[in-house]
Simulated scan of single mutants.
Amino acid sequence: MALLGTIEPFNTGEPLKWKTYMERFQFFITANGITDETKKKAVFLSICGPSTYDIIHSLIAPQAVSDVDLAVITEKLSAHFLCSTVVGRFMFHRRNQKPEENMASYIKELRHLAGDCGFNESILEEMLRDRIVCGVKDENLQRRLLAEQNLTFSKAEELALAHETAMQSVSALRETTVLATHSVNKFQNKQFKQNGKTCFRGENMHAPEDCRFKDAVCNFCKKKGHIERACLSKKRGIRKEQIQKKQTANQKAISAEEEKQVQMVEAESTEAIHPSYDIFVIKDGTEIKDFMVPLKINSKEIKL
Rank of each mutant, 00 (worst) to 15 (best):
K260V: 14
D215L: 01
E259M: 13
Q194Y: 05
K108M: 08
E109S: 00
A64H: 06
L82D: 01
P275Y: 10
K190M: 05
R95G: 00
D138C: 08
E266D: 14
S255P: 12
Q188W: 00
L4H: 07
V281A: 06
K186T: 07
F25H: 02
S299R: 14
S58G: 09
E125C: 06
F192G: 11
V184L: 13
K224N: 04
R236A: 13
I34A: 04
A79F: 01
S183E: 05
S276R: 15
T12C: 05
D69L: 15
E158K: 03
A230S: 09
E203I: 09
E175R: 12
G49M: 05
L16A: 06
Q26V: 02
R144Q: 10
Y277F: 15
E148T: 08
E164N: 12
N11Q: 06
E37N: 15
T20R: 15
S171F: 06
F81M: 07
T6F: 12
I288S: 08
L161N: 03
K186P: 00
Q168D: 06
K186Y: 07
R236K: 14
T152G: 09
K19S: 01
H226Q: 11
E148M: 00
D290T: 13
L59F: 04
L110D: 02
K224F: 03
D138Q: 01
L179R: 11
P9H: 11
R95T: 02
A160P: 01
F192I: 13
R89P: 02
F44S: 00
T12M: 07
T52M: 08
V65P: 00
V87L: 07
F291L: 05
Q244G: 10
T165C: 13
A207H: 07
